[in-house]
Design a protein around this nucleic acid. Structure first.
Lengths: 189, 189
DNA sequence: GTCTATAAACGGATAGAC
DNA sequence: GTCTATCCGTTTATAGAC
């Protein structure tokens, strides 16, 4: 029994998926208008400017991802947590043609206002912090390979995951995310 | 004593830097027109469609990067070669607002024709193959950490470098590339 | 080769009726 | 809230003069 989404929520959801597909400069109010079934002027009613829309999209996307992180079973091993995280990242690929919204907006960042840059930075930092904890635990467990500080390794790991979804889509394969996970596991796959 | 560039070459050079800044959907023939000092119709004379222009841009950019790889001293240690490669990658940042053209086009790939996708794929494969050789040599030398196959590690390393330039620009810092290099060096920084 | 002129569609955004 | 109507600049692209 699914609750009906408000028009505002439909706009936001479609904006997120369109940006994950084609980026900030690759979709228009007209695209949204056709997908949601309202006129472009109605979209301006909810989101006066495109920048307003993007900022709200990043906030909603971040909230969803953060909720996903909190839902990871805290009793799992570090190795299993990393596997769960990689799997979550793979899900963003959708039908194989989407990448992480914040990775995409990082590519488009020079076309965007500072407010969006700050929101995307916050997303990066939160994910890196979460991964740093997992890597530190994995090093203590002896299941994950951490060369250097956990923080530095976590930044590298997150960058590798962002780069991997990009490559996965480019090559039409999901295997590239597995390469990343294997690189941090002690017993290499 | 610099040789004067042809109009065609000027267009191509500016197209490359503009795309490294704002992506495929973030620049126009008008932008190029103003930078080069010719009318947009003259640009269409050299590159009938925008897709033609992008394909030529990727080819020129790839040729330049491949020449850069060949210019790396073959007698260097694997560790030093990785450092040289990371430095090259850092140079693409320019004034801190540009990323690798092929990383950017990988983000924009769903707006582009297959011909461009294939050219970007070839760029990825060539870089990954070069890095795989360096990692294999580094593992033999005992200076680089390679967990799993050199090929899998090379794909991860390349993805991490692409993700790192993205993050470097996002955060206005060049330090994130150093994180990546440190992660693969045996004596962590 | 480069220009002027123009086409035809698309872009984000607003005013005002209902 | 949603619509119609409209503004006005932008975008890719073409025709044809020079």
């Amino acid at each position: 029994m699914e609750t009906k989404l408000t028009v505002r929520d439909q706009i936001l959801d479609h904006a997120i998926t369109l940006m994950m597909l084609r980026g900030y400069n690759g979709f228009s109010y007209r695209d949204l208008s056709e997908l949601v079934g309202v006129k472009t002027s109605s979209i301006h009613y909810y989101f006066p400017s495109k920048d307003d829309l993007v900022l709200e999209a990043v906030r909603q996307y971040s909230d969803e991802v953060m909720a996903g992180l909190r839902s990871v079973d805290a009793t799992l091993s570090a190795e299993a947590k990393l596997a769960a995280y990689t799997k979550m990242f793979g899900k963003t690929l959708g039908d194989g043609d989407q990448i992480c919204l914040c990775g995409m907006l990082a590519a488009d960042i020079e076309s965007l206002p500072d407010s969006v840059r700050e929101a995307v930075q916050a997303f990066f930092r939160a994910n890196e912090a979460w991964l740093a904890k997992v890597l530190a635990a994995g090093a203590a467990e002896g299941t994950l390979v951490v060369n250097g500080s956990a923080e530095s390794a976590a930044r590298t790991l997150f960058a590798a995951l962002q780069g991997s979804v990009l490559a996965s889509r480019l090559f039409h394969t999901k295997s590239r995310l597995k390469d990343v996970e294997a690189t941090w596991r002690k017993r290499a796959a």
